[in-house]
Each structure stands twice: as C-alpha cells, then as structure tokens.
Computed example of a mutant assay.
Amino acid sequence: MGKVAWGDAKILADFNYSVDVLTPKYNYLQHLPKYDQVDGVSVIRLPSFFQFGNAAIIPKLFWLLRKYDIYHLHYPFYGIGIFIMLAKIVWRKKLVIHYHMDNLANDWRRYIFQFYLYFLFPQLLKVADVIICHSLDYALNCRGSWWIKKWQYKLREVPNGVNINFYQPVSNDERFIVVTKQLLFVAALDRAHYFKGLEILINAVNKLISKNWHLNIVGNGDLINYYRTLVKTLNLDQKVTFFQNCDDEQLRRMYQSSYLTILPSISSAEAFGIVSIESLACATPVVTSNLPGVRSVVDDHVNGLLAKATDVEDLRSKIDYLIEHPKEAELLGKNGYHKIINMYSWQIIGQKLSKLYENMYH
C-alpha cells in the first residue's frame, strides 16, 4: 500500500499539484528527519500518541489538516481515520478514500479489523467525496462491498501504476528458449503476507511433471525459516533459491530474466498484485489466482493464466502447461506488456487522478 501511495504522490507532483505526504514517524524511522523533500514531494513524519505495527494515533493530525484542500486517505490505515473524518466535517475540505484491500486475521486482530469495517469504515465512506478502488471487480466483491455499494455513485476505478521506463523488456531475450525455466515469486515472507500463497506454490512445484525449472523466491520476513524448512523437507534445495535482500535494480533484472512470475494468493487480502504489473511490464507472463481484483490485471490465456485459489493441483497444471509451451508463454508476456503500456503507466494513472480531483470542484 505504501508503494502505491508514494507512486500516486509523485505522479501528482509531476502534474503540478502541491503534495504533502503525512505519515507516522515510526520507531524504526527515528533516524529520519521530520521534514523531507523527495522527488518533488514533501514528506512530513508525525510523532504519534500510540503505535502498534503500522497503526498510529496522531491527534494533532486534525489541526494540521486545516491548510489542505484535499485529503487523500489510503485505507486501511488504522488509528487516524477518526481525525481525518472530523477534519473533513469541521474544515469542510474534500476527502478521497482510497480503499486498497481487506484486512484479514485469525487472531485477536480480527476484532479490531471487524470494528473498523462495520463502524468506522461506513462513516468514512459516508462523508467522502470520492471512493477509489483499484478495480470495480474487487470493490464489488470485497468484504467492505456492502458499504461501497451503498455509496457506489462515489466509486471510481484507478488502478495501481508501474514505472514503464524502469520495468521494461530486454532486447536479445533468450529466456523462452533456454532449457531450465526460471520461475519467480516476489512478496514479503511474513505472517501479515501469508495470504500471498507461497506455501501453496512450494507444494505445487513439488508436484510439477516437468523437471526443467528453477524457482527463485524474493522476499524476507519472520516466516522465511518456515518456508526454508518446507523446501528442505520436500527435498527441493537444488530447485529453489531464496533472495532475501533485493533492491529495485536487482528485482527488475529478475523479472526480465524470468520465464514466468507466479502470484498464488489465497484470499481477498490480495486486491490487485503490483507484482503482476511489474512482471508484465517486463513482458514476463503471470500465473495468478482467480480472485476479484487480481483477475482484472491478468486475462486468462491472454497475458497469463488464472488458477483456482488454494488449489495446489490446478496451480501445478497451469505452471506445467506454460513450461511445456514456451511460444505461448512468450506471446502471453508480449500481450501483457502492451496491456501495461496502455492501462497502467504512471502517466495514465496521473491523468486519472488529476481528472478525478478536478471533477470534485465541478
């Protein structure tokens, strides 16, 4: 969510909007200054009354919001919604609620998520001028869909964007003719991102009929040792490699050199899949789960394949099929690249956001 928020802020600055990003000064960011200027965007890190994970309570936010014309809240963002809602009402400014995803949990956190979903979320939508979702498919099928449908006349579709000048195909592309096909998975390997479905993927590749593959896993987190143990237990040590710390340049090269990117998400906590558009921007086809929002990016048998969520065998069959059909895989990648150029470049997203802002005043 943070990556999208930052991308939105930068492209709006390019469109000559004066943009301030207000964010909590998290404990692990104490070394950073309170005020910063990055790529034409002002970053203001605010001390919080209370922090837990990424949630933060910042009472002074209410007063700071007086000077702004538009509040663009990337949601879910726990702890600040009430202050933004009050500021909207008292200062009479414009409010955009940018709904990213459902938050799901099986522990005590689910009660907090449910409280926000059933009590605060509908109040935010009620006072909002515009509601943004990455796809109408997700907006009308997510857990908050009942409330979104109630104020559907406010709903606008603005997908995530990708830097097509950075993520792009390479010339002399030989990845579709080499014998060993490089498969790629990219995600945080922590409990909060278990929904990305890496365990499903590891079990699926263990059953692949084809032997000409190698899986590269990019990510880090508190579950990495769990996944390493699973790989070792299945005797896949020679077929799976973990890359814990990849910068953007390294990640781009991995997309460009991969035969196939796999995003086997298992629940509605996955609303879009930035990995999919980054991969397709590099003309690398994608196999992903047939979930609302996710399937708005990947068109089945056009720029990738859709697999049944949580279905190990179906995922295995889709991966095997593309490994055995390299010409089709290459065509899917090319189709995906053209879709990204026409729909998901940051320039296009900036135009959508700019028009949306202007329409709020007309």
Rank of each mutant, 00 (worst) to 15 (best):
N163I: 05
R110C: 00
A329H: 07
K94T: 01
N206I: 05
A187G: 05
Y35L: 09
N141P: 03
L22A: 05
V41P: 07
N303I: 12
L64G: 12
V231Y: 07
M101R: 09
I148W: 15
W151Y: 15
I277F: 12
H100M: 07
L223H: 15
R175V: 10
S276P: 01
F115S: 00
N203W: 00
I266W: 01
L46C: 06
G40R: 11
S42Q: 14
G79R: 07
L331R: 11
P292C: 04
K150Q: 14
D69S: 14
F115D: 02
T310A: 01
V43Q: 01
E313T: 14
G7Y: 04
Y68H: 06
R143F: 15
V158A: 12
L198R: 05
V178P: 01
A309V: 07
H134Q: 09
V186S: 10
G333M: 02
L22Q: 06
R253C: 13
W213M: 08
A56F: 00
Y361T: 08
L291I: 09
D300C: 10
G40C: 10
R45C: 00
E249H: 13
L215K: 06
S48G: 04
F272W: 15
A105V: 02
V186P: 04
L124I: 01
T288I: 03
N206K: 12
L331D: 02
N106F: 11
L208F: 10
V158W: 05
P169L: 10
S258V: 02
K239R: 14
I57W: 03
R143G: 14
L183I: 00
S135E: 03
T288K: 09
G197Y: 12
L61E: 11
I89K: 15
I148C: 02
E199D: 15
L236F: 11
D129G: 03
L95Y: 08
K150Y: 08
S296T: 10
D107V: 00
K88T: 06
T241A: 09
L12S: 04
S289Y: 00
Y35F: 13
V205R: 13
D247V: 14
P285C: 07
Y357P: 01
G333W: 09
F113L: 06
Y17P: 03
I217N: 02
K327I: 07
H193G: 09
L29F: 08
L73V: 11
